[in-house]
Simulated assay, not measured.
Amino acid sequence: MFEETKPRIVKSHDINLDSDYINWIHDVKQRYISTQIKAAVKVNTERLYFNWQLGRDLVERKAEEKWGKGIVEQLSLDLQNEFPDEKGFSARNLWNMKKWYLFYSSSDIFSEMAHTIEESIDLNSLKLQQVGAEISENQKLHQAGAEIEFPAIFGFVPWRHHVEIVTKCKTIEEALFYVRKTIEESWSRSTLVDCIKANLYQSSGNALTNFAEKLPAIQGKLAQ
């Protein structure tokens, strides 16, 4: 929210700043911030989707079996050589991409669980409903046949948050709990790490306990 500060006035006798103008300029500022947020989410989502696909490739192509144990390091060198100004192509980060995809693809109902959370989150309150819809539509256009779906909600969470979640969580239910809380509470990475260390998932009553069994009856809403 903006602080109600007195606007600067141009040096002219033809300016009359009434309450209607004040309300209008406030709305313009809010719309601009919303545009910035949407643009940032789109950029984040595209990069995350790239990471997801690269992790998928490493898993489904069985890269290490096909090209040898050092293939991830070789891929890292090739990508860094081609894109020297881009960050994120270290061997360690490529291993994280593989871990990320492998963690979620191990569950047969992961896509249903993620979709249920997506429908239960009030994106409208985040002023990002349109972005979420665009992410979902873009996802459908690029999705391969039997590929594990990349959830639209993942686009609202920074990459390093995702790495912390799959590294420190033991189950998909726990991981998705922290994905959801990160979105709803706008957690920083340090806050996320602290909450995982404090075992918030357990202390909050296992918000996703028995999630799989209850899923068909939830119909898009989480059982609290």
Results as ranks from 00 to 15, higher is better:
Lys87His: 14
Lys66Glu: 04
Glu60Asp: 05
Glu64Leu: 04
Met113Glu: 04
Gln36Met: 13
Leu77Val: 08
Asp85Glu: 15
Trp67Tyr: 02
Lys66Pro: 00
Ile71Pro: 00
Asp57Gly: 05
Gln30Val: 03
Gln36Phe: 12
Gly55Cys: 02
Ile71Trp: 02
Ser105Trp: 02
Ala39Ser: 10
Ile33Glu: 11
Gly70Cys: 03
Ala39Arg: 03
Ser107Ala: 07
Val72Arg: 02
Tyr49Trp: 14
Leu79Asp: 03
Ala91Gly: 14
Ala91Asn: 11
Trp52Met: 09
Lys66Cys: 00
Ala63Ser: 01
Val72Gly: 01
Gly88Tyr: 08
Gly68Cys: 05
Gly55Trp: 01
Glu112Gly: 00
Leu54His: 02
Ala91Ser: 14
Phe110Met: 07
Glu82Asn: 14
Glu64Asp: 03
Ile33Trp: 06
Ile33Asp: 08
Glu73Cys: 04
Glu82Val: 11
Leu58Trp: 01
Lys87Met: 15
Lys69Met: 04
Leu102Glu: 06
Thr35Gly: 07
Val72Ser: 01
Ile37Ala: 09
Lys38Asp: 13
Glu65Leu: 06
Asp57Val: 03
Asp85Trp: 15
Glu73Met: 05
Ser107Gly: 07
Leu75Gln: 07
Glu46Asp: 10
Glu112Pro: 00
Leu77Phe: 06
Gly70Ser: 06
Ser106Tyr: 00
Gln80Trp: 14
Ser107Asn: 10
Gln53Phe: 06
Ile37Met: 08
Met113Thr: 00
Lys69Asp: 04
Trp100Asn: 08
Val59Gln: 01
Ser107Cys: 10
Leu102His: 04
Leu58Pro: 02
Lys62Ser: 04
